[in-house]
């Protein structure tokens, strides 16, 4: 495991914890797209089915378990405990526009045509677009709470670090996984616009609001 990979995982975990703490402390999930969070829960569920079939390391098993728990707790807080604060009106991204192409593509373009492998591929493709309902919500309302932008920043940073991890692995192990790399690049591109706003506005102490 290289430094980019471990920092990527830490960023990912930090992003999820920031979101949970934000919701828990403010007792509100205002500004958070429940749809994106449901998609992430589906992503982890379909990807980590190998918890039952493969053992890699204690680290791998524990992290997968923690990621799954974070995702499910977040969904529960949004649609359960704090559902009165959930902004259903502005969370209006049509999920079928993501789920249908992603499902189709995972059947067409995968490493091997087996149930677990198709589900893994589905999870990789879905993860690359899962944040779109959240970004759509921000563009619709025209603003985001600063803490929400920190969440998005660490989520984007995770992807950027994973790209560095793949370059590193390609150089040192001659290893690469085309499906993961292409999806990772696509996903990181979605964050570029946000990164720009984050650096030019949020880091200078301003709230993220769109003109």
């Amino acid at each position: 495991m290289n430094i980019f990979r471990i920092l990527g995982d830490v960023s990912h975990l930090l992003a999820m914890i920031i979101l949970l703490v934000k919701i828990w402390r403010s007792k509100s999930c205002a500004g958070i797209s429940g749809k994106s969070q449901v998609l992430f829960a589906i992503v982890f569920t379909s990807r980590y089915l190998d918890l039952f079939t493969n053992f890699f390391s204690i680290y791998n098993t524990v992290m997968k378990f923690v990621f799954l728990m974070c995702a499910y707790i977040t969904v529960y807080l949004i649609y359960g405990k704090f559902r009165k604060t959930f902004d259903n009106e502005n969370d209006s991204f049509r999920l079928e526009f993501l789920l249908i192409p992603v499902t189709g593509l995972s059947f067409l373009e995968n490493q091997s045509f087996t149930p677990l492998e198709i589900l893994w591929t589905f999870s990789i493709y879905l993860e690359s677009v899962a944040i779109l309902p959240q970004l759509f919500m921000i563009s619709k309302t025209g603003e985001a709470e600063t803490i929400t932008t920190h969440y998005l920043f660490f989520l984007g940073l995770y992807h950027a670090l994973y790209l560095a991890n793949w370059i590193w692995r390609y150089q040192t192990e001659n290893y690469y996984d085309q499906i993961a790399v292409v999806s990772g690049v696509v996903q990181t591109i979605f964050y570029c616009d946000f990164f720009y706003l984050y650096v030019t506005k949020v880091l200078k102490g301003k709230k993220l609001s769109l003109p």
């Binding site: 995982d9 190998d50 493969n54 890699f56 791998n60 992290m63 991890n165 001659n174 290893y175 996984d177």
Partner: peptide
């Protein structure tokens, strides 16, 4: 290129 046998990343 190493043949991929399993997904060891998160």
């Amino acid at each position: 290129i190493v043949a991929k046998t399993a997904h060891d990343e998160l």
